[in-house]
């Protein structure tokens, strides 16, 4: 992509002898909000640290805004990073935390004050200037860390698991806050997360990573509807994944004849794509739980456990009873690998 704002080319990152990320290529557009998504150990945090300059690549190039910064030290890259732990300075007041970077620039005092106050206002922390970080709630600390990065007007803002230390309600609030800040400032953001719902809700594009490689890259809609691999499908909530052999589905527990032939490697269904109550197969209900708009069943089948959601209008099938189910081709996602 020619208009890439952050460009990682053949990037290899290692810790001593261990290669964490081999040969990564990624382009981030200006003003984009990109999620690096994956389980722990997939290389997403390592990649983020390399962009920040906290980790020197073994090989490859990092270009930001047309400048090769591969060898530029972290303090000269003009990048913001919000740490998972927030990493606020406990000995400084909220105001001084936000002003910290500005003071290093040796800006006139009036300017430091103006920009710090503006930064604290952006995240809704006006009035908290004299508080110490320890006297603030988790959500406030998070916003303080965000303000501290934003006042530096970084070219790119990196966020390490920005919502993981917050409770459910605050997480939603902070998610909206991040989106608003991104819209207002137009800043390019890269955030790291292991939570697919967070990535789906926030990102313009998602980079799904596995073992240091990009497993799939696409918009949330693309990843959600069309995961390309079993790993991606599993991460996106296709919880029933089976190999295909002729007209049979195969798992390590057994096989099931489905009556249609799919010329693909695997088929995957979301729990909502599995039919319950009608269908050619039978399974025994081993768990059943109410989930608001639907009921979540776990069925024991020849293929092992199958997760199936039934509309709440259909009569409940008690645990231990047999029920008909269907794995229709229509709701299946075909996987190549």
């Amino acid at each position: 992509m020619s208009n890439a704002f952050v460009s990682l080319t053949d990037l290899t990152l290692s810790y001593g002898q261990t290669v964490a990320v081999p040969d990564l290529n990624l382009d981030v557009l200006e003003g984009e909000l990109i999620a690096l998504l994956g389980p722990s150990g997939c290389g997403k945090t390592t990649t983020m640290r390399a962009i920040a300059g906290l980790l020197t690549p073994t090989s490859g190039r990092i270009v930001i805004d047309g400048l090769d910064v591969t060898r530029t030290p972290a303090n000269k890259r003009g990048i913001g990073l919000v740490f998972q732990s927030y990493a606020l300075f406990p000995h400084l007041s909220a105001f001084e935390n936000v002003a910290f970077g500005l003071r290093l620039l040796k800006l006139p005092n009036a300017q430091v004050r103006a920009r710090t106050e503006a930064g604290m206002a952006t995240v809704g922390l006006t009035g908290f200037e004299t508080r110490k970080p320890a006297e603030m709630s988790g959500g406030q600390q998070q916003r303080l860390a965000l303000a501290r990065s934003l006042v530096m007007e970084p070219k790119v803002l990196l966020l390490d698991e920005p919502l993981s230390n917050l409770d459910a309600r605050l997480r939603l609030e902070m998610r909206n806050e991040l989106q608003r800040v991104q819209k207002d400032t137009g800043i390019t953001m890269v955030f790291v997360t292991h939570d697919q719902s967070e990535a789906l809700a926030l990102a313009d594009r998602i980079v799904l990573m596995k073992d240091g490689k990009i497993e799939q890259l696409g918009t949330p809609a693309e990843l959600y509807a069309k995961p390309a691999t079993a790993f991606a499908a599993d991460f996106m909530g296709f919880e029933n994944i089976f190999r295909v052999e002729g007209s049979e589905l195969v798992s390590h527990l057994g096989r099931l004849s489905v009556g249609y032939e799919a010329k693909v490697h695997m088929l995957a269904w979301r729990p909502s794509g599995v039919g319950v109550g009608t269908g050619p197969h039978t399974g025994r209900v081993i768990s059943s739980s109410f989930a608001g708009g639907h009921r979540e069943y776990v069925l024991n089948s020849p293929l092992g456990q199958i997760k199936a959601d039934a509309p709440i209008e259909t009569p409940e099938v008690p645990i231990g009873h047999e029920v008909a189910f269907d794995l229709p081709m229509a709701t299946a996602r075909s996987l190549a690998a």
């Binding site: 030290p73 972290a74 303090n75 990073l81 990493a87 606020l88 300075f89 910290f100 290093l104 501290r148």
Partner: peptide, 22 residues
């Protein structure tokens, strides 16, 4: 925590400044 120093460096400190200021 070591990440406090990293935060200081990202904000523009040299390693020595991160040590003396944080």
């Amino acid at each position: 925590r070591a990440d406090m120093e990293e935060a200081a460096v990202i904000l523009g400190c040299t390693r020595l400044q991160a040590f003396t200021k944080v």
